[in-house]
Amino acid sequence: MAVAEQDTAVRTGRGTRIFIYGILLLFALFYMMPLFVMVANSLKPLPEITGGNMMALPETWTVEPWLKAWSTAQIGVEPTGLRPYFINSILMVVPAVAISTILGALNGYVLTKWSFRGDKIIFGLLLFSCFIPFQIVLIPMANLLGKMGLAGSIPGLVLVHVVYGIGFSTLYFRNYYAVFPTELVRAAMIDGAGFFRIFWRIMLPVSGPIAVVCVIWQFTNIWNDFLFGASFGGQSQPMTVALNNLVQSSTGVKEYNVHFAGAILAALPTLLVYIVAGRYFVRGLMAGSVKG
């Protein structure tokens, strides 16, 4: 039955298929290369790296670099390892992502279903915030955080990231809710549900895909941010700043294996988020962009 089971646009023969898979495999290997180097070298003792081949698998396998990077490596002047900074990052990312996503959803809901005079302008201004370079706001933001008494603290970082994140999260949710039938909101109004009840019972339960997109986007951005962390982190610096301090330290021997382990540790949470929610990411992006 050659006619059946064809859901691609172009029919492909065996030769073409081998060619396509070959190319794909090649590119996959190419993109996997840095990860392979990092993982392989993070599991080697240091002499194997300095005296040998970066591309080779470890001769003696060891988790020592990982343990060191996590708990004893010299970060700046303190031999604390990356652990406290990892915890800082978590304490910063979770509330920042949660708050900016919820506010974005609320904004999107208001901008699409409770339109008011000037709502387009408000949305335009929010969108504009997506295009403001981070560097421009550094000094006014430092000033403001200082006045609010939040300088150098995790709540301060959370605030900065929430403010910066609202533009994008609003954009996502607004576009998603724009195609959500307004009749449903009207039906709920007639049924007697109020503003928050409609949001909570009608809108949020169907916002799964776009919420995932928003969470992934915010999580990756906030976790990977270096500039705000370095500028406003103070005593509560996030993982990215610590990693920099670990890798860039200019005294002593460069412990490449520890650096590799540290870098993987820093990248692990975002990787995890992508693996867990990646499927929904694509689905949500499609829902937001194509229909919106």
């Binding site: 039938p181 009749e183 039906a187 709920a188 007639i190 007697g192 009608i202 169907v206």
Partner: peptide, 20 residues
């Protein structure tokens, strides 16, 4: 008076059933 307090019920063109 708010729609919910008029003691009316409405059937919409798209049915407007809550999907969740």
């Amino acid at each position: 008076v708010h729609p919910s307090k008029r003691n009316i019920a409405m059937v919409f063109q798209s049915y407007a059933l809550y999907p969740n």
